[in-house]
Simulated assay, not measured.
Amino acid sequence: MLTWGDEYPIHQTPEPVWVAGSDRNFYDRYFFNGYSKDGAVFFAAAFGVYPHLNIMDGAFSVLKDGVQRSVHLSRVMHHERMDVRVGPMKIDVLRPLYSVKITLDDAEGISGELTFEGRHFPVEEPRFTRRSGSRMVMDVTRMTQNGRWSGWISVDGERIEVASDNFYGTRDRSWGVRPIGSQDPQPVLPQQLPQFYWIWTPLNFENLALYFHVNDDEKGKSWNTRAVLAMEGVDADGLLHLDNPEFSAEYDQGTRRIRKGLLKVTDGQGREHKVTYEPMSTFQMKGLGYTHPDWSHGLYKGEYAIEREDFKPGVMPWKEPSNLHIQAISKVTHEGPDGQSSTGIGSLEQLFIGPHEPSGWKDMFDA
């Protein structure tokens, strides 16, 4: 079967592009977030392609005045991976590795045209490889890039102007193998208590961007981490990879929600940098399909489906499994080795399931 992709020199196997290896859980995804410098407006989008499920889906969500308004979309893609449209939502790559555009044309009351422009060359995160027994659960590559947004959003007739001098954000591209679509009815034996400790924090300051993520095991040992500082406009060689990252957190009483965070890293000269995090508001990742009970990524919803969903993240119980995955819009302060400091803004993404010895957690959702 031939598709649009076969016209381009991108083949990596002897087969046509519509074939993506042999794992039914192969996926290819765009993720975006954006926010005003004061944190009053936060928006995010996800767009996924699942070649062996023959599904393409997307979501867009806006948080303003304590209310998160989301739209979910899904369609059968008929194996055409390069036609990146689902109903009124479309993704356009304007300049590879630099600029991407999102368009929504009246998606259940939500419209917009938003253009992302990177502030630096994308950061390639270390390959994520995770098994459950002998079964591969994650085998993923991701690139992450901080940038600026321009354009507009309209929600139920209210127009929000998005100007590049006032809106920062982040985008990532990830691909590989991870759980998608319907759950496997036959789990790996013997069954074990799930465990996942995930922090992902792309940050924007006036003159630089800073990136950090970590996956910890139940003992608190990181199995995947990276920290990078990027000055405005640097290319791949200009990315400053930071060493010895240590993240510590204080949690809201009786929860697994971070109320204050501290990152310590060292640069190539051994000098220490510190970043403090002060969360201001909460964005529910299920508004983009992550851990959503009905709109989980890759689920079959028929030939085409679209649905609007509104909720108030601030009053939703943290312990509900579908509410665990969040991004906390945070005020951040960077203290450099020369004694100077600068303030910025970014997202503090959190997903904590199961034991984590440094946090004192021993069960699935204890706090």
Rank of each mutant, 00 (worst) to 15 (best):
E158I: 06
K37M: 15
D363L: 10
R142F: 01
Q183A: 07
L239Q: 13
L73Y: 03
G147C: 01
S164M: 04
V93S: 12
R178N: 01
V100E: 11
Q269T: 14
T225W: 11
F116V: 01
F352E: 00
S182V: 15
W175N: 08
L210A: 13
V19D: 06
F43M: 09
V49I: 14
D366V: 11
G5E: 00
Y251Q: 01
D57Y: 05
F60C: 08
K264P: 11
I10P: 02
H120L: 04
G66L: 14
G147N: 01
S182Y: 15
Q191K: 10
I153Y: 01
D310G: 13
F43Y: 10
T255S: 15
G21D: 04
R135I: 06
R148L: 06
G344R: 03
V315K: 15
P202C: 11
V71G: 02
P185E: 12
S322V: 06
S330N: 00
Q186M: 02
P16N: 08
S134R: 14
H356L: 11
V155P: 02
G181F: 05
G354L: 05
A227W: 03
Q253S: 04
G336D: 12
A107W: 00
N33F: 14
H356P: 02
V137K: 03
P14L: 10
I91A: 03
H120A: 12
Y251M: 11
